[in-house]
Amino acid sequence: MAKVENRTLREIMTKDVETVSLKDNVYEVACKMRDWNVGSIPVVDEKHDVIGIITDRDIVIRGLAEKREGSAAIEQVMSRDIVLGRPDMTVDEAAKMMAEHQVRRLPVVDNGKLVGIVALADMAVRQVHQDEASEALNQISEPASRH
């Protein structure tokens, strides 16, 4: 059986991505996550450049567990060291990158501007990429090695 040509992130990414800025607070982000039914939201600056991401886990670990108020600034709980994808990356490349960095969601940027987001689930629901997504999930789920 011939291998199907590998698709790019542009073809599978979610293009309509909601974002937040540093002007929002943790409570507002949590409400947006609930309303949009998402577990992560990219954080952008005034120019719409991606400067971080905030996840439901960030809110729990860096917010609630640190006893921060709901009015705490996003800056206190967001992840700044994020991995970014490009629209022209193949799904294979993205899956390997996500596995290497143990991330489940990959903001996709073009010239620094957010153009979409790909979740591991986006890869898994597409039959052609099931193996790549499965392999990435296995690697993401492994505990990170301590140095």
Rank of each mutant, 00 (worst) to 15 (best):
T8F: 07
V109A: 15
P87W: 00
D35H: 13
R57G: 11
V83N: 01
R68H: 12
R57T: 08
A30E: 10
A144F: 00
S71E: 14
L106M: 07
V77S: 07
V91D: 01
R126D: 00
V77L: 06
K32S: 11
H48T: 09
D81G: 10
V17M: 13
E28I: 12
R10D: 01
S79F: 03
V26T: 13
L106K: 11
E46I: 05
A94I: 09
S71C: 06
S134A: 10
M1Y: 08
L84W: 00
A121G: 11
G39I: 01
S141D: 08
L64S: 07
P143L: 11
S40V: 11
I117Y: 03
V83R: 03
D88S: 14
R104A: 06
T14M: 08
L137K: 03
S21M: 13
H129Y: 00
M78Q: 04
M1E: 09
A73P: 12
I117S: 09
V115T: 10
I74G: 10
V77Q: 06
R80C: 12
I41P: 02
Q76G: 06
P42Q: 12
A94D: 09
Q130N: 01
D45P: 03
E100T: 13
A99Q: 04
M33H: 07
S134C: 02
Q127H: 06
I140P: 11
L137Q: 01
Q130P: 00
R7L: 13
K3Y: 07
V103N: 03
L84I: 04
D122E: 08
V17W: 12
M89D: 07
D81E: 11
V29R: 09
N25W: 04
E69Q: 14
S40K: 10
I41S: 08
E132A: 01
W36I: 07
R68M: 11
H129F: 00
V20F: 07
D45Y: 02
S79T: 15
A144K: 05
D131V: 06
R34H: 14
I61W: 05
V83Y: 06
V17C: 06
T55L: 06
Y27M: 11
P42D: 10
L137T: 00
P42T: 11
K96C: 09
M1G: 14
K15T: 15
V50R: 01
I140T: 09
W36G: 09
V125T: 01
A133N: 02
K3W: 10
T14Q: 11
H147R: 02
E5Y: 03
R105T: 07
P107H: 09
K113F: 03
L22K: 05
E66R: 15
A95Q: 05
H147P: 13
A94H: 07
S40H: 08
D122I: 09
R146E: 04
K47D: 03
G116F: 04
D110V: 02
H147I: 07
A133Y: 02
M98V: 14
R7T: 04
E46D: 14
R104W: 11
S134R: 12
E66L: 14
R105S: 05
V108P: 00
C31R: 14
T90Q: 10
V125D: 05
L120T: 05
I41Q: 05
A65P: 08
V125W: 08
K23N: 12
V43C: 05
Q76A: 13
A95E: 07
A144Q: 04
